[in-house]
């Protein structure tokens, strides 16, 4: 399984970034070969609007099974994300990446479907 985290750093000990569209970094964990990698999302920092859409596009290209984040993406980003098979979990904004992963394994994170 491939899991993507929104984070402020590149490692297991980095704090999560609660934001989706303007997250600093996407950390990618591949369970199959136990490898951790990351891609930067810094380019959205200069966008006034639509940051979430470019972030969603990156996630789509990573084609993960799971996305773990803090608040959850906005409606426009969801429009893009629903074209992938990714399942989203939220509420991990205050954790480190490692803690977020453990919380996910323990079934402690809420599944994110859509906004009201």
């Amino acid at each position: 399984m491939k899991i993507v985290f929104t984070a402020k750093g590149e490692s297991w000990d980095s704090p999560m970034d609660p934001r989706f569209g303007r997250t600093d970094i996407f950390v990618v964990y591949n369970e199959e070969n136990d490898s951790l990698s990351f891609i930067s999302n810094a380019d959205t920092e200069t966008m006034e609007h639509g940051a979430g859409l470019q972030a969603a596009k990156k996630v789509l290209e990573l084609s993960p099974d799971i996305l773990i984040t803090g608040n959850g993406p906005g409606n426009k980003a969801l429009e893009i994300l629903k074209r992938s098979k990714v399942t989203m979990y939220v509420g991990a904004g205050d954790m480190t990446v490692k803690e977020a992963y453990n919380a996910f394994l323990a079934g402690k994170l809420a599944k994110f479907e859509s906004r009201v």
Binding site: H49, A51, L53, Q54, K57, L60, I80, R83
Partner: peptide
Amino acid sequence: RFNAVIKVGDE
């Protein structure tokens, strides 16, 4: 310039 048009896959 406004992220209003996005190419996703073949859409």
